[in-house]
Amino acid sequence: MVISVKNLTKRYGDLVALDHFNLEVGEGEILGLLGPNGSGKTTAINCILSLLKYEKGSIDIYGKPMAPEAYDLKRKIGIIMQNVAVFEELTVYENIDYFCGLYISDKNKRRSLVIEAMDFVGLNDYGKFYPKKLSGGLLRRLNIACGIAHKPDLIILDEPTVAVDPQSRNNILEGIQRLNREGATVIYTSHYMEEVEQICTRIAIMDKGKIIATGNKEELKAMINSGEKITVEIYNPENRILTDVKNLPHIVSAFFHDSFLTVKSERDKNNLMVLIDYLKTRQIAFGKIYSEPPTLNDVFLEITGKELRD
């Protein structure tokens, strides 16, 4: 086991940020820690990294208790913080070299690692640039390069794609998967469910300082009752339509949002053709129509009664 967190409790005054938080991360996993803002993801990461004191619980990394003085453990960890943490006064190369130098003292080895990290995040052409000359996306890439240059066994990424353009986001996500293929265990926190679904081998959903569900995406989606979600644009939405649709077989719920009718079916049941038949038979005019499988947001919604992005 790479990380084992047991019954972790952290309070900020009266607010319970982590409430008997339990987490286990196995070697070679990409664990996604998914939860809305304020759910306790960053607090959990900070406790795991010994940046915060906690009231109760234990944290073991590679079988050893994690503490501020556990320098041998810290040597194995690469951290990419939510906020970009680089020196404005140093160039891209110098920044990566500085952070890599905190772990690797051999100059020649470090030089090749820095070049490798720059290559990995696609910053080869920006080695002599100062951070203020970089775009937001490139800055995020620099932040990642600073965290992974020393080739850590465990990489913790705390919302690394916040305010990043789609091109850089894809670059970052592909990079994380590549690092994992090269042998690193990854913990990835985010409130973007699409990202977590895309790259994580296992997902832990957090809310109010607790893990409320864990598993891979299929396992998580299997936990909920609803299946397919159909959205239809109805030109003349009427209550009669809603009543009729709800009476169709295998329908879990149906509701209007402006002129869009959303219909949720039972798990493993498809209602798209039935719904189209109904609309045609009743000669109800409709426009766009979408059908989508359940998302992690649906999982979160069903478990907590609120949306991930609330």
């Binding site: 041998d72 913080m81 020196f87």
Partner: peptide, 18 residues
């Protein structure tokens, strides 16, 4: 001031630098 920047400080504290 640079070394006391909240994020950099946090980042340095995560490293094995004593």
């Amino acid at each position: 001031m640079v070394f006391h920047n909240k994020d950099l400080k946090k980042r340095n504290n995560c490293s094995p630098l004593k």
